[in-house]
Simulated assay, not measured.
Amino acid sequence: MKKVSRRSTLAIAGAAAMAPLAAVRAQQQTGLPDKPLKILVGFPAGGGTDVMARFLAEPLKQRTGRNVLIDNKAGASGTIAVETLKNAAPDGTTIAYVPSATIVQKLTMESVPFDPLADIQPVTLAGTVQTAFCVSPTIGVNTLPDYIEWLKKNPTRQSFGTTAMGSFTHFFGVMAGREIDIPLEPVPYRGAAPLVADLQGGHIAAGCGGITDFLEHHRAGKVKVIFTSGTKPTTSAPEIPTATQLGYPKLQILGWYVFFVPAKTPTPLVDAWGKELRAVLALPDVQKKLTELGLDVETSTPAEFTQRMTADLARWKTIIDSIGYKAQ
């Protein structure tokens, strides 16, 4: 056995002592609290929002050296999670991963307990997402024309499940019914997971939600996505047509996913979160996975997203008014 010199021994010991110190310094450089970090998700485990948040938590943990926890505050189409964020301490330990389907409810539900422009503040856009209209594999439908013919033969089943009432996962289905001249009745579900289960079992004929909620299940044959809401097919599934391509140009809605913090979170903490999140979202493996889930990755500054959200809320109000929906 080779003898190790005293100098080598000291060098090895010194390096070992420095390694934890270097790790601590790296963690401190994140600018985030040296505490466990929490990501609030407003939908049940297993849905698209939850799957994405859990996937992003791991590289965040590796970058920051903090334990990153997912806290599912499911219910009320995601608004419970946002209300929880609104009331959370603005100390940088809590953020929320929120879809536009939740934010738009400020226009449709009088009881929504937050103002998206006052009670929370954006950190960064994570990406854009199309709304998907899908059918149960049990009804033997593969295209929109097939579905229209099926509806005419089954007038008692002209309903669709929605992952969030009072959001565009609700309105897109209603708008689709108007465009095909067959009224479709929304049925509320507590997120995508129970809706997918009922679609797979044939308990409901159709469903509407973000494509991130349905794409993996579409590929697995549990549901059949027959069209989406973009002006062009989503990057992750170019074979699925848009309603525009099928001759229904009024069926265009583009949603998004955003990370928010409480409104009074200090700017240095917002900037620190933005730096870490944008770095994670730029990782090739992360972009590949999110694209596969149906999210077209895109980031922003807080100011850029605030401008976008303000413009979208104004445009969405015009759409909501056009279909005659009144705040509940």
Score class of each variant (00 low, 15 high):
Thr162Asn: 00
Thr162Glu: 02
Thr163Tyr: 06
Ala164Gln: 11
Met165Gly: 11
Gly166Ala: 08
Gly166Tyr: 08
Phe168Val: 11
Phe168Trp: 15
Thr169Asp: 09
Thr169Pro: 10
His170Ala: 10
His170Phe: 07
His170Val: 08
Phe171Pro: 15
Phe171Met: 15
Phe171Cys: 13
Phe171Ser: 13
Phe172Arg: 13
Phe172Ser: 11
Phe172Asn: 11
Phe172Asp: 11
Gly173Gln: 02
Val174Leu: 13
Val174Ala: 12
Met175Ser: 12
Ala176His: 10
Ala176Lys: 11
Ala176Met: 12
Gly177Cys: 13
Arg178His: 15
Arg178Leu: 15
Arg178Ala: 15
Glu179Ala: 15
Ile180Arg: 14
Asp181Ala: 13
Asp181Trp: 13
Asp181Arg: 14
Asp181Gln: 15
Ile182Gln: 09
Ile182Phe: 07
Leu184Gln: 07
Leu184Cys: 02
Leu184Ala: 03
Pro186Asn: 12
Pro186Arg: 11
Pro186Leu: 10
Pro186Trp: 10
Pro186Ala: 09
Val187Ala: 06
Val187Cys: 06
Val187Leu: 07
Val187His: 06
Pro188Glu: 04
Pro188Cys: 04
Tyr189Ala: 08
Tyr189Leu: 12
Tyr189Lys: 11
Arg190Phe: 15
Gly191Ala: 00
Ala192Met: 06
Ala192Cys: 09
Ala192Asp: 05
Leu195Gln: 00
Leu195Lys: 00
Leu195Asp: 00
Val196Ile: 02
Val196Cys: 00
Ala197His: 04
Ala197Asp: 08
Leu199Ala: 04
Leu199Lys: 00
Leu199Trp: 01
Leu199Ser: 01
Gln200Asn: 03
Gln200Leu: 01
Gly201Met: 00
Gly201Ile: 01
Gly201Ala: 03
Gly202Asn: 03
Gly202Leu: 07
Gly202Glu: 10
His203Ala: 13
His203Gln: 14
Ile204Asn: 03
Ile204Trp: 04
Ala205Gln: 08
Ala205Tyr: 05
Ala205Ser: 08
Ala205Arg: 05
Ala206Asp: 05
Ala206Lys: 02
Ala206Met: 03
Gly207Lys: 08
Cys208Phe: 02
Cys208Trp: 00
Cys208Ala: 05
Cys208His: 02
Cys208Tyr: 03
Gly209Ile: 07
Gly209Trp: 06
Ile211Tyr: 10
Ile211Ala: 06
Ile211Cys: 07
Ile211Pro: 07
Ile211Val: 08
Thr212Glu: 12
Thr212Phe: 08
Thr212Lys: 06
Asp213Tyr: 04
Asp213Ala: 05
Asp213Gly: 01
Leu215Gln: 03
Leu215Cys: 01
Leu215Trp: 02
Leu215Arg: 01
Leu215Val: 03
Leu215Thr: 02
Glu216Ile: 09
Glu216Met: 11
Glu216Gln: 12
Glu216His: 12
His217Asp: 07
His217Trp: 04
His218Trp: 05
His218Met: 04
Arg219Thr: 12
Arg219Gly: 12
Arg219Tyr: 12
Ala220Tyr: 02
Ala220Gln: 07
Ala220Trp: 04
Gly221Met: 06
Gly221Glu: 09
Gly221Thr: 10
Gly221Ser: 10
Lys222Phe: 13
Lys222Cys: 13
Val223Asn: 01
Val223Trp: 06
Val223Cys: 05
